[in-house]
Design a protein around this nucleic acid. Structure first.
Lengths: 344, 344
DNA sequence: GCATTTAGTGCAAAAGTTTGCGGTAAATAT
DNA sequence: ATATTTACCGCAAACTTTTGCACTAAATGC
């Protein structure tokens, strides 16, 4: 049988309560006693069962991680593993455990969350995405379980903790970057507007155009819904015609690669005929043959901060919901051409 | 305060022990009582705290997941997220929780494992990799904590549970595939031999050559250690000279893309001048401009089976260590050229 | 019809830790 | 020197669930 505080207490010549207080670093224990007890603990290799230590302590120190429901956006996207790493890193430092909650579909995930939550075993939840009409968020709001969103809140904004990039600013900066390279015919290509990050990046793009007094042309603002495909008619339409843009801001790397493959089909080359800048700085951004310039959104830190916020709120329930903005930065590679009219 | 079995007991007019036995589906409780109690439980939304339910039950139902220590191989590799999904999926079905254990370096990970293990809070560990000289495996062996390896065992083979692909067979089949396309000058490119999957794939490659009575040339068997780079002299050496191979079996997709980019630098094109087949079928295998043919190793199922094995052994400690082989299959794309001497 | 088995349930102890309260001894104040 | 405060620590109850044992009532065997 494993060693308990009783064993430590017996060896140290103190009571179990004292050992317990030493474990929790209770100030009413003298320095000498603490040291003595800690020595014995180290000797016996004792570690307090910090997660869910019996019924006397209701703290489970367990938090749940939920992946986005749509496989085609998720599982192919290394971004999420980085975020999970960030979450785990912080949790481990603070003696929490972070468990991924999965299922075949949204219903199954919801059931897993319910089971754990109603059993009182979850301190909180981190959602790695944000979308409209989310049953899981509905459930969390109903039951009042603490959660943080990586992304932008749509239910109860102002009362939910969000960790996000400044996607609007990032969209502006990406557009500005192309502008400074001399581009004037700049298009935007995004995924489904249901995903709020794409909507924000688009807004940033539009603001940048206005600022530089460039026209905001609807034909230059394209969205692809559902699974990406190189045969998408909107892509072909965007790239054909006389008024073909010289540069495109693309909402994510996978879509950018899809665009590039469409270019190949149409005998256009990147960056000679078309400059591309996109978001996420996915690992394959550097592996594609055309070396994608991409906005790094610091996925690791996104996860790290999310865990930090969640745990802060777990331990200080009176805290108000905050919004955290994680910085981004452009990683320059070779997918954007300098048109030689550089202003700087 | 949350609802407990006492509340259920009071409402159902039975004792708490009866409720507890109902939760555990104890056969000595009558059908009628079970139904009555279950009705009340459903009514009060009661879920038994299945993970670590107090000190009366030592089962924590928590397992740890450990990522490979080398970031350059790991975090860029979507393979691992798929595996984690597989693990989580199975764990959730069986009411277990799976937590990723991370740290800045191997030491920090080890400390996290120690903390949880010595606190008696881990049922077992799943390692998402296998390598030689692994301090974490050393520790697990010492303390006797149950673990399963995704990959091949090197410490105590025969006593450790492994989930793996038949990498030797996969290596043979990849090589055979090139042979059938008419290739006779086939090279192998792998990563550090420390990672056993690469060593096995190489052996399979060599066996296939022997079977087809092709010479096994050392110059055709190249390994890259450390971080991949397109400037690697071994890559340049492999691709230059008169006896340049017409096809290469590459140990993983990322390395394959690195190879392709080296080709571009050297004015060779894929698959016209060089055919490439590699492993993992990473998502970006389909996004690269040359559409990589790759061996899919079913990462999700690898994780799923690993969790299944671990939990089986947790619940039946007398089980012997098994090895599980998860099948693979070649996903044909466009990176391999048919030389026209196809035998079939 | 009586003795014995069986099924079903409750009682109470046990698990390991936390925490309010009370107590002792030392330190300080008067 | 006595009274009061302070620092430190132990006692015991509490948390929720599990489980061995005992008990009752019904069912079976003779």
């Amino acid at each position: 049988m494993a060693v308990t505080i009783k064993d430590i207490a017996a060896l140290a010549g103190v009571s179990p309560s004292t050992v317990s207080r030493v474990c929790n670093d209770n100030p009413s224990i003298s320095k000498e006693t603490k040291e003595k007890v800690r020595r014995i603990m180290a000797q016996l290799n004792y570690e307090p069962p910090v997660l869910s230590n019996g019924s006397a302590n209701q703290k489970t120190r367990l938090i749940g991680i939920i992946l986005p429901p749509s496989p085609w956006l998720t599982y192919e996207n290394p971004f999420y593993l980085e975020t999970i790493r960030g979450i785990s890193q912080f949790c481990n430092q603070r003696q929490y455990a972070a468990a991924v909650l999965t299922g075949q579909d949204e219903e199954e995930i919801l059931r897993a969350v319910q089971m754990l939550n109603q059993g009182g075993q979850l301190e909180g939840i981190i959602l790695l995405y944000s979308k409209t009409e989310d049953h899981i968020v509905d459930y969390l709001c109903e039951t009042g379980l603490l959660y943080v969103l990586i992304g932008k809140a749509n239910q109860l904004p102002g009362q939910t903790i969000c960790i996000d990039n400044d996607n609007l600013l990032a969209g502006r900066e990406a557009t500005d970057y192309l502008y400074r390279l001399g581009h004037r015919k700049i298009a935007y290509l995004g995924c489904d507007d249901m995903f709020l990050f794409s909507a924000d990046r688009k807004s940033g793009y539009q603001l940048a155009l206005l600022q530089h007094e460039l026209p905001v042309i609807p034909e230059y603002c394209v969205e692809i819904e559902g699974k990406y495909s190189t045969d998408s008619p909107v892509l072909h339409q965007l790239l054909s015609g006389k008024d073909r843009p010289t540069a495109v801001v693309v909402s994510d790397d996978i879509l950018a690669v899809t665009l590039e493959r469409t270019c190949i089909q149409m005998n256009l080359s990147v960056p000679e005929d078309l400059s591309i800048i996109s978001f996420n700085n996915s690992p394959f951004a550097q592996f594609t043959s055309f070396q994608l310039t991409s906005v790094d959104i610091n996925a690791f830190q996104l996860g790290f901060e999310a865990a930090s916020q969640l745990i802060n709120h777990v331990e200080n329930p009176n805290l108000l919901a905050t919004k955290i903005i994680v910085p981004h930065h452009i990683v320059e590679r070779k997918s954007c051409r300098n048109l030689g009219q550089d202003i700087l």
